[in-house]
Computed example of a mutant assay.
Amino acid sequence: MTQPIAPHLRRLATVLCSALTAATLTLAPLTSLAAPPTPSADDDDAPAVPPAEAPARTTDVTEAKRLFDAGVARYSAADYGAAIDYWLEANTLLPPTAEFSLVKAELIYNVARAQQKWFEIDDDVKHLRQAREILSSYLGDLDSLYDPAQATLEREKLEEQIADLDAKIAAWEEDRRRREAELAERMRPSFDFAADAREAKRNKAMLSAGATLTAFGLAGVGMFSAGVALASSADRQLGDLPLEANIETREQVILRGQGGTALIVVGSISGLIFLSCGVPLVAVAAKAERGRKKRRAEAGVEAAAPLLLPGGGGVGFVGRF
């Protein structure tokens, strides 16, 4: 759908046409005045006459008018990037003189307006930021471009547009933060409470089994220690018996020593087996439980925790839904 040409574009076209006419009328006499007499063949010392600048200047203004019109056509077709390129090129062709200062300023103003329209198409916030910079710069030139009354009116309009741009930029940034938060939430894996409960039960069973085996292993270590003590005591007692001691007494001491030896063997074997199974099982269960709690924390889920309140207590639950 073709967009209507904005009023400020029509005004700028009128100003540019007027400037072009004025430049042509003003510069036309300069062409004839600048035309030098043809030097004679005998006048070898005649200085070279520089080319007249007036035709080139008129040509630049004419080309700037053509580029401006081309930019208006692209603006009406919603091709804002091409319109900006045309207007910036036209701006470079216009002479940096007082008579064209207003035209150049309004060309840049049109670039800012095109940037805002461009944002509505691709939602790239850089267009709004560039438009704001252009309008802020244009705001500082108002006093030199307009009479005081007109400058005041233009300043009010520009300040309103800059405030609107600030609001749009803030809204875009807030919307981006919201979208990023939503994306992060969607990418976060959903928490499986059933699997978590099964893992907690498994870890608890592993921990209980490991603790039981470790306890048996420690009992084996105790048995081993008791056997060592019993065997050592029997050995010392047997060595202290006199030669005339009866055989029955010696047999009792020897039996205690053999019992201690049996305790050493059974305790060492059972302690080694049970501890070698129980301790790793406890370590694996503890590591698995830490991993489970870490996943719960990352998912925003925490286990029930006691709450100590004045005059009573309770259980609190924290979770993500």
Rank of each mutant, 00 (worst) to 15 (best):
L218H: 03
G222L: 13
L309S: 09
I134D: 02
G314L: 08
I121S: 02
E106F: 14
L128V: 00
A64I: 12
A83D: 07
L25W: 05
S101T: 12
L25P: 00
E63A: 15
E53G: 13
L183K: 01
S233L: 12
L93V: 10
G291N: 13
E133I: 03
S190Y: 05
I5E: 02
F68K: 10
S136C: 03
L142G: 01
T21F: 11
R202H: 05
N91W: 11
A35N: 05
A82C: 05
A131S: 02
N246R: 15
E199G: 07
Y138C: 02
E248G: 15
G222I: 10
D240W: 13
S268Q: 08
K204E: 06
A54V: 12
V103T: 13
S101I: 09
V253E: 11
K287R: 13
L153H: 06
A297R: 07
S137G: 13
P50D: 06
L165S: 01
A149L: 10
D192L: 01
A151D: 07
F216R: 04
E199Q: 14
I169P: 01
A6H: 03
A303Q: 07
P306I: 06
E251H: 15
E99C: 11
A194R: 08
I247G: 12
L263I: 02
T261Y: 08
E154I: 06
F274D: 07
Q150N: 04
G312Q: 08
T261C: 06
D123C: 09
E120G: 03
